[in-house]
Amino acid sequence: MSAYRGRFAPTPSGPLHLGSLVAALASFLDARRARGRWGLRIEDVDPPRCPPGAADAILRQLEAFGLHWDGPVAWQSERHDAYAAALARLEALGLAYPCSCSRRQWRDHPVYPGWCRDGVREPDKPRAWRLRSDLGLRPVRWEDRLFGPQAFDPAELGDVVLRRKDGLWAYQLAVVVDDADQGINEVVRGADLLDNTPWQRQLQHALSLPAPRYLHLPLILGDDGQKLSKQNLAPALPDTEPEARPLLHRALALLDQAPPAALAGAPVDEQLAWAIDHWAPSRLRPALARGEDA
């Protein structure tokens, strides 16, 4: 194994769909081409969004497509202590603060205006915890492997929530802590998370954690022009190998890898062997979105 450590980290709010497959496949191929490790992390920190059986369905779908992960599955629901320690450190650094404000209160502002930065406005109300985006690393710069040089000022994006008012952990803090603890140094994911990266880089810097490289993938649109997602009721992937074959070939085509037509009905292991040998991120077209059948 090389030093490459990648991962796929779905939220078990429902079964995987074609857009999920494209992201999982790209991260898998990138890791396997580099002779690296590819882990699976189930991001289940939001139980109300995670119906029973959804995580098991995701595991069956990945196995049907031949996307076998290395090592045990990681579960965010088991990581409370790690997230709490990170939040305590951010608070000690003056970079995290409690906030009683509701979205309704600041709905006329493009981003949360930081009203509780110098003290909770309504101490008798439930509190979330937010990141002081104006005090950390600014601007945030990195080189995306597809979209090239990136530069954001996190303060223009607002003070992101780290822990919700109901006590549940928010995505930005959890993903940063988990990637660092799991040694992830290569992240391949959809372009809809491109503007999440500034907050994550800011958190990595504040917590003295290493920053992975990023490859953000073009999004896949449905026939209605919307991003394929569970919220938009994208059709679920099959969980049997024969049904997976044509969809795997389609996903390779959506990743601009130009798989031979003769592979369309081949077993998934045969398709993946070809795809690993020929994986070339340089073929990806850096468009934010394109049609499902492109």
Rank of each mutant, 00 (worst) to 15 (best):
L157Y: 00
R130F: 11
G148Q: 12
P149M: 02
D134L: 02
R130P: 09
V177W: 03
P154W: 13
R141A: 13
F147Q: 09
L168Q: 06
L146A: 08
S133P: 09
K165D: 05
L173E: 04
G148C: 10
V177S: 09
E156W: 11
F152D: 14
L146W: 07
V176D: 05
L131P: 07
D144H: 14
D159E: 12
G167V: 00
A155E: 15
Y171M: 12
V160I: 06
G148R: 03
Q172M: 11
F152I: 11
L162V: 11
L135R: 14
L146D: 11
V176L: 02
S133K: 05
G158S: 15
K165M: 08
V140F: 02
A155W: 15
L162D: 06
E143K: 09
A174M: 06
L135Q: 09
L157W: 04
D134V: 00
P126S: 04
E143M: 15
D144R: 10
A155K: 07
P149C: 01
L168N: 01
D159C: 12
D178F: 12
P139T: 15
E156A: 13
D153G: 11
V175T: 04
L131K: 03
F152T: 08
G167C: 05
R164V: 04
G148A: 11
V161M: 00
L162T: 05
A174K: 02
K125Y: 13
A170T: 05
K125F: 09
L173C: 12
G136F: 04
L137D: 10
V160Q: 01
R145I: 05
F152Y: 15
P126W: 03
R132E: 14
A174R: 07
R138C: 07
E156S: 02
P139E: 07
A151P: 06
L157G: 02
D153S: 06
G158D: 12
D153L: 04
W142D: 14
V161I: 01
V177N: 06
R145S: 03
D153M: 05
R163V: 05
D166L: 08
G158W: 09
P154M: 14
Y171R: 03
F147S: 03
L135G: 06
D178S: 08
F152H: 15
V176C: 04
W129P: 08
D124E: 15
G148Y: 03
R130K: 14
D159I: 06
E156R: 08
E143Y: 13
W142L: 11
D124C: 04
R138W: 05
A155Y: 09
D159G: 14
W142E: 05
K125G: 00
